[in-house]
Every structure is written in structure tokens, then in C-alpha cells.
Design a protein around this nucleic acid. Structure first.
Length: 104
DNA sequence: CCATTGACGAAGA
DNA sequence: TTCTTCGCCAATG
């Protein structure tokens, strides 16, 4: 999982990445669903709120619905634009590939 | 041990 | 466009 944690940690402030996109670039690719499962039990020092659905949707629900609001708040406080209450602007969405050069 | 269930997403109807 | 099915596979009951 170290590789996944590293990727998430390298997401710049004010940017978000999709679950499936992350799973796809791993050394051992996994489905977005598994990325989500991993994120639900990730280390507390990860910027987990910068991971969203493929179309920028805030998914976090099911077990702890309150997390969805927390995620939205954190993203908004980073300056991420929203096109809907629970969906970020496409411009904030980036591919894990673009994490290499940037790192902000 | 077996059935369900997800921080998902693509494909088919 | 909305709904269902299916692949993914570890965790949960």
C-alpha cells in the first residue's frame, strides 16, 4: 500500500484525483473500489479528501456520512471549485501521471 | 465457512 | 439519460 499512500501524499493542494485513476497507475493495478476500501482505512496523515470519484464527485458515505461534509469543507478551504454541492470542477481533477512533474 | 458489502467505474439496456 | 449488471477482492457478520 506504500505506493498508494505516496501517490495520495503527492497530490498538490487545491487538486483532486479519482479513485480509479490511482488504482490504474499502481505497480499492481487495483479497481477504484479497492482504492476506496484502502482509503477508508488509510493512515491519518494522508490528504484523503483529495481523492474523489471519476467525475469529481464526493462519494464518501455509507459507513460515516459525516465524512462527506468534512471532505467538501476541506476541499473548499483549499480553494477547490465546485460545480455542485458534492462535485468539484473538472479543472481541479488531475491524473496521477501529472503528479510526477508538479508536487506543488 | 458462506453471504454481503463497499470512499468505484465501465458497459449494456 | 437513468437503471442494472458485473468485475474487483478484502473485510465484516
Amino acid at each position: 500500500m506504500e505506493e498508494l499512500w505516496h501517490l495520495v501524499r503527492s497530490i498538490p493542494r487545491g487538486r483532486v484525483v479519482g479513485y480509479g485513476a490511482l488504482g490504474r497507475v499502481l505497480d499492481r493495478p487495483i479497481s477504484g473500489l479497492l482504492v476506496g476500501r484502502a482509503m477508508a482505512r488509510c493512515p491519518s496523515d494522508l490528504p484523503w479528501w483529495r481523492v474523489v470519484g471519476r467525475d469529481g464527485q464526493i462519494l464518501t458515505d455509507k459507513r460515516d456520512p459525516r465524512l462527506g461534509d468534512l471532505q467538501r469543507q476541506r476541499l473548499q478551504s483549499e480553494g477547490v471549485a465546485f460545480v455542485e454541492d458534492y462535485r468539484v470542477a473538472p479543472s481541479a481533477l488531475i491524473d496521477p501521471e501529472e503528479l510526477r512533474p508538479e508536487s506543488d
